[in-house]
Structure formats: structure tokens, C-alpha cells
């Protein structure tokens, strides 16, 4: 029996081999670049010979006047997305679950998934069109006598706009998990409730929602690792100078530091910091999920 077990172990290692090799070659090897965060990297001298400066880059990052604002923006946008990416898809799933015409249900479910497939490069020009001066939003608001507004230029609502468009783009996709969970709710519960005279609101509130609670909690915990990801592609393609103060996030900031201002070491340091925080958050969520929901994320 024992020999057989070690025999299987060998096969397991073999199975891991291609994937691990792939990770090694294209993820782990390039990590030597992390060294740059502790150097004043000079391309002429290369990573091996650049000057070591310890934590100077990190100290400098925190001294920069805009780093605070950038972190605040990142947190507001990402937390907004995390929360609404739970609530909106949930509400949608509940509503869709009440639809009785199966064909219509299928159609809706198919269509709302589509925006998920469009990259932000493409979506951005559409969003700018929608919120533009002659766009749909202003056109419709105009029917009710509203003055046209320049949404994309308004820094006081730009973060909301980012969260809103992201939620709109992804709610169909995010609702899938809830829809799946809903199919596993025991139909007997509804019948019992109906016999007790509960109306649809009541059964939704008292049966469906509690059944979904574990799922909601889990998804919430899982998304902790994304707290510093406010969505580079989206922001990069949508922002403009008028909204820098509220739209600039960690990723766009790092991007500009590195590729536009050529501050390679600073950009690496900022990236490393971000990874480290995400790693801690993921670990915390792992522990939380395991302890309280007895669920192993990975």
C-alpha cells in the first residue's frame, strides 16, 4: 500500500510539471526584476550593477504629494466596485429568478453577458459616446427638459461613473454564480411558504435570500484580494486631465511613472508594494473563509 502511494505521488509531480515549468519560465524567472525596487536602476549598467539604495524608493513614494490621493482613489473605486458587484448582480439574479417565461429568461441571461466580452479599449469609446454631449444619456435627459451635462469632465462624479460602468459591464457575468446558487434552492421551501400564504416578496426575502447568504459572504471575502485593483484598462481608457484628481489610481500612476516618466525603479517599488498588500489580503481572506465558512478558497 505504501509503495503504491509514493508511486502515485510521482505521477502527481509529473502532472504538475508542464504547468510549473510554464510558471517558472514566464512568471518566476522575470521576478528577478523585483530587485529594481531596491536600486536606482540604470539601464546602462543593468540590474546586476545598478546602485543599491535600500528602501529609498519606498520612502520617496510616501513622500510624493499625490501618492495619498492615488491610494484614496484606488480604495474608493475598488471598494465601490466590490460592494456593487455583489449587490447589483444579486438583485438582478433575484429578479430574473422570478421570470416565468423560460425563453425570455434565457434570452436576457444570454444578452447581459455580452458586455463582459468587450475589452475596455472598445468599451471606452462607447462609454464616452453614451455620456457625451449628444450621447444617449443627455438625449434622454433632454426629453425631460434637463440641460445637457458634460459627465466625463466632472471630477466630482467620475469615480461613480467608473464604478457604475464597470458594474453595468459585468453584472451579467457576476450574476451567474447567484443564478447557479438559486437553482439549488429546494423548491419544496417555496411551496411550503405559498401554502402558509406568503407572497412573492416575502418568500424572496425569507427563503431565497437566506439561502444565498453563504454565497454572498464567500464572494465578498474572496474579493478582498482585489482591494488595490481599481481596474487599469478601464481608467486608462476613460480618464482625461479634468478628472485626474479623482480618477488617478495606483495602476495608472505606476504606469505613468514607469513608461512615461521613465522612473523604472519607482514604478517597480510601487508595483511590489501593491503585490505585497494584495498577498496579505488574500491570505487574510483565506484564513477568514476557512475559519468562518469552513471553505478553502484554494
Amino acid at each position: 500500500m505504501k509503495t503504491k502511494k509514493t508511486g502515485i505521488q510521482k505521477h502527481y509531480y509529473l502532472m504538475m510539471l508542464p504547468g510549473m515549468l510554464w510558471l517558472l519560465l514566464f512568471s518566476i524567472v522575470p521576478m528577478f526584476g523585483i530587485i529594481m525596487a531596491f536600486q536606482d536602476y540604470n539601464p546602462g549598467q543593468g540590474i546586476l550593477h545598478s546602485q543599491w539604495i535600500g528602501l529609498e524608493n519606498f520612502r520617496y513614494l510616501f513622500q510624493l504629494d499625490d501618492s495619498k490621493q492615488v491610494i484614496i482613489n484606488t480604495l474608493i473605486i475598488s471598494i465601490g466596485k466590490i460592494v456593487l458587484n455583489l449587490i447589483v448582480p444579486l438583485a438582478f439574479a433575484l429578479l430574473l429568478n422570478e421570470v416565468r417565461n423560460l425563453r425570455y429568461k434565457k434570452f436576457v441571461q444570454t444578452v447581459v453577458f455580452i458586455p463582459h466580452f468587450l475589452s475596455w479599449v472598445i468599451m471606452a469609446s462607447i462609454v464616452i459616446g453614451i455620456f457625451g454631449y449628444n450621447g444617449v444619456v443627455n438625449t434622454i435627459a433632454g426629453w425631460f427638459g434637463a440641460q445637457p451635462q458634460l459627465f466625463m469632465a466632472d471630477s466630482s462624479i467620475f469615480r461613480e461613473l467608473l464604478v457604475g460602468t464597470e458594474v453595468w459591464k459585468e453584472f451579467g457575468y457576476n450574476a451567474v454564480i447567484f443564478l447557479a446558487a438559486l437553482t439549488s434552492v429546494n423548491p419544496n421551501l417555496y411551496e411550503a411558504a405559498a401554502i402558509d400564504g406568503a407572497n412573492r416578496w416575502q418568500s424572496m426575502w425569507h427563503i431565497t435570500l437566506p439561502e444565498l447568504t453563504p454565497t454572498i459572504v464567500l464572494l465578498g471575502v474572496l474579493s478582498l484580494g482585489n482591494v488595490l485593483n481599481a481596474g487599469f484598462d478601464q481608467v486608462y481608457n476613460l480618464y482625461n486631465p479634468l478628472v485626474y484628481s479623482t480618477a488617478d489610481i495606483l495602476d495608472t500612476w505606476i504606469y505613468r511613472l514607469g513608461l512615461q516618466n521613465l522612473q523604472f525603479s519607482l514604478a517597480t517599488a510601487a508595483g511590489l508594494l501593491k503585490s505585497a498588500v494584495s498577498f496579505i489580503l488574500i491570505t487574510v481572506s483565506y484564513v477568514l473563509a476557512y475559519k468562518f465558512a469552513d471553505y478553502r478558497i484554494f
Binding site: 499625490d66 458634460l150 471630477s155 486631465p241 478628472v243 485626474y244 484628481s245 516618466n261 522612473q263
Partner: peptide, 21 residues
């Protein structure tokens, strides 16, 4: 400037446009 200008420029670009708007 190499280290500080990007931030000041960002501030300037945004403020000036906003005042006009």
C-alpha cells in the same frame, strides 16, 4: 523637476481646465 514636475503638471492641467469650465 524630474521627480516633482509630473505631479505639479497634473495639478495645473486639471485646475486650469476646471476654472474654464
Amino acid at each position: 523637476m524630474e521627480r516633482k514636475w509630473a505631479n505639479l503638471k497634473k495639478l495645473e492641467d486639471e485646475t486650469i481646465l476646471k476654472i474654464i469650465l
